[in-house]
Structure formats: structure tokens, C-alpha cells
């Protein structure tokens, strides 16, 4: 099962929300908490760096394509990086380990396509949640999102799509 690291990055390259989780479609239950991220401590500490280094590629893609979802844009030693960018220049980055479904490295292409689609769905709805947060007059662009409600909804999205 894959682990995920999701981060929303503001216009000044500042993280405004982070979340670590793993796929809730867990095969082995009882052993560990469903949804808890399985990144090793050494990977955990470099995750922010990996997503930060993907920003260069995102900013390049930002002006060469006019789609919101940028798809898979980078990889780093078995970690895949997908990104999404909104019109207001807010970046959504998702890092995940690819050796999730089966240990045989590359899984069937149809499954991969499914994954891409569910990540796209996840990004789209995450963006919607962010817009709802932005509509709050007490929130201003680039503030960290500390609302427990936002966190709860985001985790529900993670459970639903990934």
C-alpha cells in the first residue's frame, strides 16, 4: 500500500498545508492503523525538500500548458511527484511511493491510469476545499490553513480517492 505526502504551496513557495497519509484501502488490517503513513523516518525528513525541488519543474510547466492538472512531473528514487496548479498560482503537490500495489515495480497500465485519475479527482476536490477556505474573510492568501474542519475534510478526500 502506498504512502502519500500532500502539500499545498502558496505563492511565495511557502507550505500552507501538509498531510501525510497512506492508502485507506489497506489489505492488511489489524497490524497497523489504516491511513497512517508508512514512510521511513529518513524519507519523512526529505519529503519537504523533494516537493520543494519539484517547484522548478512546476513553474516551467505552468507557462507551457494551460491545464490545471500537471500530472506526474518528477520522481526521486522511487517516489513519484504529481502536481496541480490553480489559476491563483497555488500549487498542490503529492509525493507517493510507487511500490504500493504489488512489489513487482511497475503495475499494469490500466491500474496506473486509474491511479492518475483518482489523483486528479483528489486534486480537483482539494482545490475546491481550498477555495472554500479562501472565501473566509479572516483568511488571507498564503496563511497556513490551521482549521481542524479543513483538515478533517481533506482526510476524508484522501480516504475517498487514494
Amino acid at each position: 500500500m502506498s504512502s502519500y505526502y500532500f502539500v499545498i504551496i502558496g505563492t511565495r513557495d511557502n507550505p500552507i498545508y501538509e498531510l501525510e497519509f497512506s492508502s485507506f484501502r489497506s489489505g492488511v488490517s489489524g497490524i497497523q492503523v489504516p491511513g497512517k503513513s508508512q514512510f521511513s523516518p529518513s524519507v519523512k525528513e526529505i519529503l519537504p525538500f523533494i516537493s520543494h525541488s519539484a517547484l522548478d519543474i512546476i513553474e516551467d510547466a505552468q507557462w507551457s500548458t494551460n491545464s490545471f492538472n500537471l500530472g506526474k512531473i518528477d520522481s526521486f528514487y522511487g517516489l513519484m511527484i504529481n502536481a496541480f496548479i490553480s489559476q491563483g498560482n497555488i500549487k498542490y503537490v503529492l509525493c507517493y511511493d510507487a511500490n504500493g500495489s504489488g512489489t513487482n515495480g511497475s503495475s499494469s497500465p490500466s491500474l496506473n491510469k486509474n491511479d492518475e485519475n483518482s489523483i486528479k479527482q483528489f486534486f480537483t476536490e482539494a482545490n475546491e476545499l481550498y477555495v472554500k477556505c479562501l472565501l473566509n474573510p479572516f483568511y488571507s492568501v498564503n496563511n497556513a490553513i490551521t482549521s481542524p474542519d479543513f483538515d478533517h475534510r481533506m482526510k476524508l478526500l484522501a480516504r475517498k480517492y487514494l
Binding site: 507550505p15 501538509e18 485507506f24 492503523v33 489504516p34 497512517k36 481542524p148 474542519d149 483538515d151
Partner: peptide
Amino acid sequence: SSRTGFGYNPYKGPSSNAITPETSNILI
């Protein structure tokens, strides 16, 4: 730290809203 297990704290990073047994139960 959040009492309910929900809510992101930018000073702590992702460990502040990591999924715990309780929150996992609520979500599932």
C-alpha cells in the same frame, strides 16, 4: 497540539495532523 487530532500546525509540520488510531477510526 490539537485536542481532536485534526488541524494542521505549521510550526510542527505534518506530524501535527498525522493520522492516529482515533482519527483513522473516525475517517473509516
